[in-house]
Write a protein that binds this DNA or RNA. Sequence first.
DNA 1: CTGTTAGCGCGTTCAC
DNA 2: GTGAACGCGCTAACAG
Lengths: 340, 340
Amino acid sequence: MGATLDDIAAKVGVSKTTVYRALNGKDRISSDTRDAILAVAKELDYRPNILASGLRSKRSMAIGLIFNDLMAGHFYAEIFHGIEDIATQNNYGVILGCTNGIVEKEKKLINLFIERRVDGIIVSPTHGVDIGCYLRLKKEKIPFVFIDRRIDGIDTDIITTDDFMGAYQATSHFISLGHKKIVLLNGPEYPCSTIEKRIEGYTTALKNNGIKDNKIISLSDKTLDQKKYGYMAIKNYLASGPLDFTAVFAINDSLAIGAYKALVESGARIPEDVAIIGYNDDEMDQYLDVPLTTISQPKYEMGKKSMELLLKRMNDEVVKAGDTYENMVMKPNLIIRKSC
Amino acid sequence: MGATLDDIAAKVGVSKTTVYRALNGKDRISSDTRDAILAVAKELDYRPNILASGLRSKRSMAIGLIFNDLMAGHFYAEIFHGIEDIATQNNYGVILGCTNGIVEKEKKLINLFIERRVDGIIVSPTHGVDIGCYLRLKKEKIPFVFIDRRIDGIDTDIITTDDFMGAYQATSHFISLGHKKIVLLNGPEYPCSTIEKRIEGYTTALKNNGIKDNKIISLSDKTLDQKKYGYMAIKNYLASGPLDFTAVFAINDSLAIGAYKALVESGARIPEDVAIIGYNDDEMDQYLDVPLTTISQPKYEMGKKSMELLLKRMNDEVVKAGDTYENMVMKPNLIIRKSC
DNA sequence: CTGTTAGCGCGTTCAC
DNA sequence: GTGAACGCGCTAACAG
């Protein structure tokens, strides 16, 4: 175990408090004793024990982070980097857990975080989770921010992107190119607040342009990964009927990539026979043979902002009665490439 | 703040010790008082304070995890899931930090982990890092395991895959198909133990088959992401001379994907004019127009094993003098697809 | 400028 | 069966 304040105090021949003051840059201390203390601290490789300090000061200097998973494109990975950079700069540790969409796991993680007395939590919540978890956090006065996704019935800071607008842009772009048979390809994670908004954006854009045909393609098997899900969904669809659409709006790039493969295998040319737009602007998109048109969001920025916001809350800028939570909605961006 | 043992004790009218015993399943307690205590604990939503318990018991129930980054394919993401699943099952928290190959960041993270009194560390170390960090961990008796990468001069548990063999297999496969002009495409992260072994496997396979031509393509600009690096490296190479190779062995899939794009743009057909093999078996590989032949490793398993090993070490199966550390080398696997 | 004292919440020892 | 008392290492209030 590392050296303690007491060890240093004994060696220098002063009290623990004096050592504490020297090490934490407090004033009311002579530079002589301070220098002596710092020298000994260095000699002993002293590192403060954050557990002990946290116990006393009620700040664990750690936050909890909950994602669905890290495997569908690099969406969460990039958000993570935004969060971690800011956290590390501020000497916070980031405890990361992934739910894979399993609500019990989300609950377990929240409970672990409470036991760990994290100072705050950033979470992309799962639909259907017991909102008791989040009420509990409120009771404990542990601030938390929802990122990318949200759930109903919980009032807190939220950072999302405008999914309605993104989907609206994508669909409108199809329409402006003359498409009339546009299907939406949904993924295994539905229901989910983000996806709902995208579906809304899609249907609204169609309606506003007087297009009545709308269709959502999906699959009942929720166990597949996104790419395989997209692939199988299209495969199944084409197996049970003719190709009766000219455009696919996939609610994420992984699905789009799976769909692309299925379509190509069926003999369709992209974008001549079927145009495709995805969502998320994965790094990968530009390296496909037919680079993927997609909707991008400021992922790193979202992570950064969420951590900065959480830092504010943890530093006692608590939301008082009557005050209001932040609800940041970042703007998405249509990136036109070759698939559409 | 949550309820404490004292709160429960006061409410039930017993001592703190009794509450402790009831809650931790100790015997020497009547079932009546236990039931009463459990009821009140539930009523107060009691959660043990891990910080306090850790201070006392010297176990923080947290581990530190250090990766390079999460953005090059899903290699580390998948390892992470293996680690996190086991950690969460055992009520350990995983504090994740990424270095982006910056040695100072690695040092900073290690120091944060020490201050946090993590019970153990899993790390994919960066070449050139101050090995003082790791000697320090040894002094503090904090067990750590190297995963995927290793550095010289530090004796500890190590889990890697046989990179020599993987590269040897890939290169031999090229040779068995009649290739004689095989180049190796290196990435921005060199030097690095993993890559060195792959280079060795490559050169050895050539040598053993009597092929003298060997060439490593790389770029001085280390700031590019892997895909762009692979793309630019090939682009540059072709700009300054003719296409004088028939096969590219890329030391990871992201590089291979970048190289593929550059080659296609130059008019080469894959695999007729140039064959490609990558490394890592990213999920993405099978969705490329020319599905990528690659070397796979048991990524999730590596993460799982590393956490299980660390758990053993943390549970006092410490390596005594004369005893020896684990050095697990997992087997890679050649996955043949269309690019070769 | 420096020291004393008293916790934070839990875990352990020892006494009853 | 139960409880009193002390200590983990750090922080803070209060003295001097």
